[in-house]
Computed example of a mutant assay.
Amino acid sequence: MDIEQIRSYCLNKKGVTEEFPFDEHTLVFKVLGKMYALISLKKWEEGEAAINLKANPEYAIELRETYHNIRAGYHMNKKHWNTVYLQETELHPDLVKSLIDHSYKMVVQGMTKKMQSKLEEL
């Protein structure tokens, strides 16, 4: 998947916005203000296409053991975040979408009931 496909997929989820809260190079996707995906545009332009995604801790480890291009989250909490390197070997787009979906769901599950209700109303 290219960056525009990933961006479009992330933005099509309910309650999602995109921001640059850290610097002009780090694109962050949030659901009701909570991060669920990050992309370094600078690294992407340098040929290091990658996306940071949240994951259930057990699933995060399983993914790292299964795919050599999924590693502990770069500059993130290594227990809860993975970095998915897209340029090393092409991951099937369905897998990438599944990982994005999982990250989104993890963040929504961690929200208060009030926030979850607000999301449902959108």
Rank of each mutant, 00 (worst) to 15 (best):
S98H: 15
K42Q: 13
P57W: 01
M76E: 04
Y104C: 02
I100W: 14
R71I: 12
K105Y: 12
I100P: 01
A50M: 12
E48I: 11
A37K: 04
H80R: 04
L53Y: 06
D101L: 05
Y36V: 00
L41I: 03
I39A: 01
S40L: 06
S40A: 08
H102I: 08
A72R: 14
L99V: 07
V96S: 09
W44Y: 15
A55G: 05
L95K: 14
A60T: 07
H80L: 05
L38W: 07
A50E: 05
K54R: 07
I70V: 13
H102Y: 15
S98C: 12
A37V: 00
L63G: 03
K105D: 09
S98K: 15
M35N: 09
D101T: 03
A49V: 05
K97L: 07
E90T: 11
P57S: 00
W81F: 01
S40I: 07
V96T: 12
M76T: 03
N69C: 11
P57D: 00
A55D: 04
E62N: 09
Y59M: 09
S40Q: 07
T89F: 13
E62M: 12
E45L: 10
G73E: 06
T89C: 05
M106R: 14
A72E: 14
Y36F: 15
Y67N: 08
Y85M: 08
A37W: 04
L38I: 04
K42S: 10
Y59W: 12
Q87H: 15
N77K: 05
Y36R: 03
L95F: 15
Y59R: 13
N52W: 09
E62P: 02
S98G: 14
A72M: 13
H80T: 01
S40R: 09
H80Y: 06
R64W: 14
H80F: 06
K54Y: 03
E62C: 06
Y104E: 04
I61F: 13
L91F: 14
Y36S: 01
V96R: 13
L99E: 06
N82D: 02
L63W: 14
L86D: 03
L95Q: 11
N56I: 01
L99G: 09
R71A: 09
I70S: 06
S98P: 09
K54E: 02
V96D: 11
A49R: 13
K42C: 05
S103A: 06
K42A: 10
R71P: 04
T66Q: 15
D101K: 03
M106V: 09
W44H: 05
